[in-house]
Design a protein around this nucleic acid. Structure first.
Lengths: 341, 341
DNA sequence: CCCTATATTTTACGCGCGTAAAGTTTTTGT
DNA sequence: ACAAAAACTTTACGCGCGTAAAATATAGGG
């Protein structure tokens, strides 16, 4: 418990009366040293509170336990939630995760990937920015480092792709909306950052066709990641123009829907599936706050747990040397019926 | 642009026909080498796309440019927003920020701090968990590493404290609520993680006394960081019991308020300051989504920009060797009047 | 109790780079 | 054109630790 003036493993080994390599072995696997040594080391750790420098440790190690986790934007609840899950899975499996955000910007993404190489990661879990990503950089990175791409597919690179089944998302919720009331219009951003948005639109179109309804897509302007603001403005505009052919709107994602709900509110339009409601609104993603919107938002939620677990385990398997052909795993979401639709 | 087979600075220096130490100097400061050398190095970088290993770089450097940023929980929008700001300021000042989250858990916080030492940071910007933090560990860390504490004060440790003026927050919004309608009740968590919550309660009490109103504090049960859920349940309960003496509620923070609004909605209680509204609700923090709640939430917002700038610059000054006595800087928030109150 | 097989520890070197000190070249001033 | 100053390059060593190979200690068998 005393304040260790011990600066490195050399000194620590000397004080505990054991050779440095043995101490090194101990930290790598406590059971790999003799019991008597282990006890002396552990007593010394207790006494001096010494810990090896993790970066020096990884410097000359054949296989590190580092795993890099990269998401496009940490402030987006979907990514912060999935990142949280991934980190936990890594820790549980004995790895050391490090989290990076590309801050919604392609240049940052490239920089993160560059820095990641210095970490000598055993593997990387990467959710690319999508459309904006530098494809060449991603591919080269995947070629150099065992990488599992999740959330947003960017060609067959990396070990495997794991993400949500966006076709199923839009299909199932469109299906529900059609069966429970008027068919939905589709509300989306004109230039979404993420390719999943395209899948959702296409799936909506297909589902509507299957039902024999006329689809209607409202694409609103707006760049960047301020989806609520974009949804709000787009909805304001569209509501003013009475642009929606039916009384039901399916938003491309929950954050747009949150903006949409807000626009409805300020325009005095009551949202919900009940009597006296003017419009039904649904989202997609299972954003943590959709439970608390007014009204609570009907949505289709990512299976966060399954996506993150599948992604993590596929990466671990690859790190363990199990070679598999590239594949794409798409995990179904779960419809969450609430008052908004 | 070719795929560099270059593994280290040695090889890179050899290929570019320059000594390794000179290359090292170049990466440390391109202007510190002769122009002819610089051009040759830059040509080689272009050609082989070489970058030094950032962790090896910092290994034996007297002063690194690393800055650690630690927040209690990244999934909380307040922290992700402030962290984003801090990162940008670090980058702008030529530092290399690395972001860590304590995941709302004291043990993680200790671990993060341990790992941070390995980074040999020039400085650390630390928002402690608060009540749950291991005080001894924090103090020892501050003694070893130039650390600036922000958001939540934990005794006079570190270089300086920078945070919001929580007394002013609750005072000003209580003031506004008293002047614009019935005096507010105060809605809070019984056992908040963060000491700022206590300040806000006390400030509310003081402000009410000043106005000559009877204060009323409703403290709801709930552990952890699921504030919306805690707010929702607490509000459900309190509304059912008609626990509020007035028609106005000041929530201790915006996330509780979001849960509160949701509870009002499902109970058919209209929120707002207008005609026909049953209750007024206000929050505190300036959560990014409060603009889009229904109704939009009246709140008092942190001055994110000022807090992060002040914190960053104080740290930079300390890193540059400017010794100042410890002080505490509390930055005022800005009242944001919306429809909810 | 002695010898061999196995478990540990030592020795020695490497990872990728920073940096001080000493030697060399280039630039500057005149 | 020459000396002094400035810039640069070499040399040499260090950071904190991993790891293979050699040396040593421990355990098992008769």
């Amino acid at each position: 418990m005393s304040d260790s003036s011990i600066k490195n493993m050399e000194q620590f080994a000397a004080i505990s009366g054991i050779s440095r390599p043995t101490v090194s072995k101990y930290f790598n696997d406590p059971d790999s040293v003799r019991r008597s040594s282990r006890e002396r080391i552990e007593a010394a750790i207790e006494k001096y509170n010494y810990r090896p420098n993790i970066f020096a440790m990884n410097q000359n190690r054949a296989l590190t336990k580092n795993i890099g986790i990269v998401v496009p934007l940490l402030s987006d609840p979907y990514f912060s939630e999935i990142a949280r899950n991934l980190e936990q899975h890594c820790i549980d499996a004995g790895y050391r995760p490090t989290l990076f955000s590309a801050h919604g910007d392609s240049k940052h993404e490239v920089e993160v990937l560059d820095n990641l190489r210095s970490l000598k990661p055993a593997g990387v879990l990467l959710a690319p920015l999508g459309r904006a990503s530098d494809q060449d950089v991603l591919e080269k990175f995947c070629a150099d480092v065992p990488t599992l791409i999740f959330d947003s597919n960017v060609g067959e690179c990396g070990i495997e792709f794991v993400g949500s089944d966006n076709f199923q998302f839009a299909r199932d919720i469109t299906n529900y909306l059609c069966r429970s009331g008027e068919p939905p219009c589709f509300f989306e951003m004109k230039t979404p950052a993420n390719p999943n948005a395209h899948r959702r639109r296409q799936s909506y179109l297909a589902a509507m066709e299957e039902f024999g309804f006329e689809p209607q897509v409202i694409s609103v302007e707006g760049e960047g990641w301020a989806f609520e603001e974009i949804g709000f403005r787009g909805a304001q505009d569209a509501l003013l123009k009475k642009a929606f052919a039916t009384n039901t709107v399916l938003c491309s994602n929950d954050r747009l829907a949150i903006g949409f709900l807000s626009a409805c509110y300020v325009n005095g339009i009551t949202v919900g599936h009940g009597e006296g409601c003017a419009i039904r609104v649904a989202g997609q993603d299972g954003h943590p706050l959709t439970r608390y919107t007014c009204p609570p938002l009907t949505t289709i939620s990512h299976n966060y747990e399954a996506v993150s677990l599948q992604a993590a385990e596929a990466l671990f398997a690859a790190i363990d040397g199990q070679k598999q052909p590239w594949k794409s795993t798409r995990i179904e979401g779960k419809l969450i019926l609430r008052a908004s639709a």
